[in-house]
Design a protein around this nucleic acid. Structure first.
Length: 103
DNA sequence: GACATGACCATAC
DNA sequence: TGTATGGCCATGT
């Protein structure tokens, strides 16, 4: 498919690709950087299709709670491999690993 | 074309 | 602090 605004998708993917290893970004953050602070849902949409668009570190994007995709078991594993630490509750420590690359 | 769903976020109580 | 509600937009049926 990939019929959504490629502009938005490209921005999101570009931002995701700019996330350094060992760090993560939230959907809202990526959406804001992409210029659509309200379209955080579309970020998830794009990320879901990210592999369709190409190879992007979509696993470095988590929700506001620092939790990974509900049905994506691979994500925490990839993040852990990147060096991202997880809390006992299974969520990423945003206060320590959230990407601050654009502020 | 309309309805329901979703890898969500922000606000309100 | 935790739950509840509204809003945004694309996708699939």
């Amino acid at each position: 498919m990939a019929k959504m605004n490629e502009e938005f998708a490209f921005l999101v993917l570009s931002i995701v690709a700019e996330i350094p290893p060992g760090q993560v970004a939230t959907y809202g953050q990526v959406a804001d950087l992409a210029g659509y602070p309200k379209n955080s849902r579309l970020v998830g949409r794009v990320l879901h299709q990210a592999e369709y668009y190409g190879d992007y570190p979509c696993h470095r994007v988590v929700n506001s709670q620092g939790a990974c995709a509900p049905n994506w078991q691979r994500q925490p594993e990839l993040l852990a491999r990147e060096g991202v630490g997880f809390k006992p509750n299974g969520r990423v420590d945003l206060g320590q690993f959230q990407w601050q690359g654009d502020f």
